[in-house]
Amino acid sequence: MAQLKLGRGKVAHAGSLPLNIAKDIVKNKYLYIMLSPVLAYFIIFQYFPMYGAIIAFKDFNPRLGIGGSAWAGLEHFKDFFGGMYFWRVFKNTLMISFYDLVFGFPAPLILALLLNEVKNALFKRSVQTITYLPHFISLVIIAGMIKDFTSSDGVINDIIAFFGGERVTMLLEPSYFRTIFVSSNIWQHVGWGTIIYLAALSAIDQEQYEACKIDGGGRWKQMLHVTLPGLLPVFVILLILDIGRIMSVGFEKVILLYNPTTYVTADVISSYVYRIGLQDFQFSFSSAVGLFNSVINFALVIGSNWISRKLNNTGLW
């Protein structure tokens, strides 16, 4: 946290005294040099391509280029909103994101808190390593494992059958899809997600714990009154960032796990667009959908940041 505070202080400084920027550059030239690739990355790969978003309003033809393609107005947006499956994919996208946020988002925080209480270093590290592992496995393999686990002769069904239940091929049940999707997401990312919390935990002032102990606080009270408030800023920032991704459920995992039986709960905006894009190279249509998603995401980020600032005075900016 110390670094973060320092960073914020600097920004405020430079902002209020523009004359000092040049001086600052000279003084911290190595820091600026280190910053420059990142800046360049964002300008080249994140900001510059935004110009390309105008193909959402054009009939883009690669040979004619962005400038040369004919204007199509809002035609692609009309096609998308007017499509038979618009409401279904829109709803599914929101539902999956929502479940992921409710169940998936707090999971790393809980794991980090639990790990924080573990005093045996060897055990702690083993748990960390094991929980990080799924994060590094390719999604295709993860999906293959999920298919194996959920198949009618898979591990999960073995357990169900052991307790006298009936075997079902879970990926053929529309009502199971979201549960499978979200719980496997948690399994994949919970370990990785703890890293940032553990980093924030290490920055909490030890004196606060001592003060709490002197006041008679036990472990539970310490967690409630020292640890959690210490983690709150990180938690809120991550939450805002996650809310900003609500409309973008990646298509990769969905298309690896769904099939026409589960379209009714599994088909999301990105997978639907993927199917359209695959048949014909409809760059413009895909861009229109992408733009629509981005606008909603952007509004959500602004909105949640505003709420967060109102409520507890922390936010992204």
Binding site: P260, D280, F285
Partner: peptide, 25 residues
């Protein structure tokens, strides 16, 4: 024409496959 085909057929294939499976199951 191919643009029209692509757009109609994505929805049609989605519908056909869902119904085909429902009918059979």
């Amino acid at each position: 024409e191919s643009k029209k085909v692509a757009q109609s057929m994505t929805a049609i294939n989605t519908y056909l496959e869902e119904m085909f499976i429902k009918f059979i199951m």
